[in-house]
Design a protein around this nucleic acid. Structure first.
Lengths: 119, 119
DNA sequence: TCCAAATATCTTGCTATGCAATGCATAATA
DNA sequence: TATTATGCATTGCATAGCAAGATATTTGGA
């Protein structure tokens, strides 16, 4: 049907918008649970959890959060393999993550209230 | 402390980003549960649920969704009071809402998996 | 009657993120 | 010594949130 196509196109456009900021929360959460990780490893872990993130999305995100002071990167050259840039949460990053979680949960709770009994 | 201020500033910047798309879902959900509503009324309902949305945010959002075909607006001039533009979900809007809900829930589930046991 | 406040909607300009596409460098392998 | 795999980075575009301000109509008081 035609109606369905129109709706899908709108949702496609919406998708990338709705991930703004959300991916920050996911990246910080992942690093909080893993202690440290590097780009491609994070991509794989996120995909494993059901969240596909491309390199063109993740790397700028990591660069920005580093610039802002939430992440502390460090290069490591393993005995075998390619050099990797490992990221950890900085103290600021931990505060930021805690605040984001609070607000995200508040927003989800608000949405559930808005949905009311219609669901 | 200084660390706290830096974190708060970052979260402030993040806040408006993280609401992109999310507000679409909230507005559509609200209309689904109310059948119809107008701008200021929606602002009040959202605030009631714990979500503060300004006019400069909501009106462009409603205009866009109307342009895209998700909302059907209709002017009504009550016997007493100011003319109001009432919005309803169109058939496309109902499909869009259903798809957004699915994807939002999938993303929340993914986040919970990412957070793992660290919470 | 005329002015101020309330109700209601709309517009402009700025900033910032997601993402496809592309490029670059190094290491392992054949 | 090519070729493939691993790993990171950059550019350019489209788009939404929001502060600030504009516009229009209705109501109530001096």
């Amino acid at each position: 049907m035609d109606e369905m196509d129109a709706a899908m196109a709108l949702v496609d456009k919406w998708r990338s918008q709705s991930r703004k900021g959300f991916l920050d929360l996911c990246a910080l959460s992942l690093l909080a649970s893993r202690d440290e990780s590097y780009g491609l490893d994070m991509m794989e872990a996120l995909a494993q959890a059901g969240l596909e993130v491309s390199e063109g999305t993740l790397y700028p995100l990591l660069a920005r959060m580093t610039r802002e002071g939430s992440l502390s990167p460090s290069w490591t050259t393993p005995e075998t393999g390619h050099p990797r840039k490992y990221y950890r949460l900085s103290p600021t990053g931990q505060l930021v993550l805690a605040a984001m979680r609070e607000e995200f949960d508040r927003n989800v709770a608000a949405l559930r209230r808005i949905e009311g009994g219609t669901r």
